[in-house]
Simulated scan of single mutants.
Amino acid sequence: MSEVSVNRLVEFVKNYYGTNEFIPLHAPVFKGNEQAYVANTIASTFVSSVGAYVSRFEQDLAAYTGSESAVATVNGTAALHVCLKLAGVSPGDLVITQALTFVATCNAIKYCGAEPVFVDVDETNLGLCPTALDEWLQVHADLDSSGNCVERETGRLISACLPMHTFGHPSNLAGLVRVCGRWNITLVEDAAESLGSFYKGRHTGTFGKLAAVSFNGNKIITTGGGGMILCDSKTAERAKHLTTTAKKPHSFEYVHDEVGFNYRLPNINSALGVAQMEQLPGFLAEKRALAAEYRQLLKGTELQFVDEPEDCTSNFWLNAVLCPDHESRDHLIELTNANSVMTRPVWQLMCDLPMYENCTRGKLNTSRSIAQRLVNLPSGVKPDKL
């Protein structure tokens, strides 16, 4: 790509953030009640997994997303692991997902003793493509006498479908719900990156049986680490039990009735989350404004801005562009980083990693093309705007 285009991009980013210092992709911003709430937690001595802020954070997330319930966890991967367990994913099962995703998506499948099956994504939203999903199932799957979806060749149960809302852009949820319903496959959403994103007016993470959200330090709001399970109230009771070492309520005895997980989110982290939730509308407004400026800046250039899908509202967690080819992608990354503007490529496809290279896959032409051409741009909120 031309030096002029790169220079314009570098100049815009530096002017936007008002600095010549190194500009990261997405830094956290703490300009609200974070210090006050954390100090309150310390004063209370309830800094671990019990405390008022845990419940408040769960209630705030449920109310904002429209989910019936929410259960806080120590990180997004833990949330996703429990989501899959509660969806019925068992050792030996197959779980259909996308190769264009962060490694935690596939790791959570492996934690359950299951294996990922990789299906292609849709270039318009970077998420699992319903057409590619249905085509793979038509060729490779059957419904058995009990109505379960099984792989035709091996008879292995295909117990779940796990799309990821890439960079906050909602996947084609109507299509995925339709295909999963037809094939009797449980839909679980990896909504780690999509807090504040809506599909046709409804928040992501509320279409499947369960969903996982992340609050890692680079997410739109952060608790340092942290995650959340979105689900119905009955499932939430089970999720709370599993994530609290499967400990039964008792006034003094330690009674555990199954193998559980110590996946609880500490109260001190939840205090951060409550304060960050208060700022979420402002964060979203600024991120959407930045996306609009990128869109205008890149109009008519060789860089294709990755925009929100039709009838969707994206949080634009990480803005991205598609370059004409792999060489121009590398050129853009090298020059911007040399000028203290952080850019990076998308993750390596999961099917190219050594632990997943032998997994079943469909045609991944779109995934491969995107992986060769995509570049993420600085997308964080400006601290001085709050």
Rank of each mutant, 00 (worst) to 15 (best):
N337E: 11
K209L: 12
A174E: 12
F46A: 15
V74E: 07
R238M: 09
D60G: 07
G205L: 03
S369L: 05
R182A: 14
T243M: 13
V341K: 07
E153W: 01
S379Q: 00
I370R: 07
P91W: 10
S314M: 02
P24F: 07
E278G: 03
S67Y: 03
E334Q: 15
T235H: 03
S314Y: 04
V341P: 00
R152L: 09
M164A: 15
E151T: 04
N148Y: 05
T45K: 15
I185D: 01
G227F: 09
G181H: 04
V117K: 02
M342P: 00
T101S: 15
H169S: 08
Y64V: 04
S67E: 00
T77W: 10
A52Y: 08
A36T: 11
D142S: 14
D60T: 11
T301Q: 00
Q35W: 08
K31M: 06
I229Q: 02
V74K: 13
E34I: 13
P130I: 05
A63C: 01
L176K: 08
Y64E: 05
L94D: 04
D122A: 13
G217Q: 10
V150G: 07
E258V: 11
Q348S: 14
L272E: 02
V213D: 01
S159M: 07
N125K: 09
A27F: 13
Y254F: 15
F261I: 00
Y356E: 02
T223W: 07
V95C: 05
F30V: 08
T313M: 12
A212V: 12
A141S: 11
R156N: 04
Q348V: 11
D352R: 12
V50Q: 06
N267R: 06
T105R: 03
G127H: 10
F283I: 08
K31L: 12
H140C: 04
L94F: 15
N172L: 09
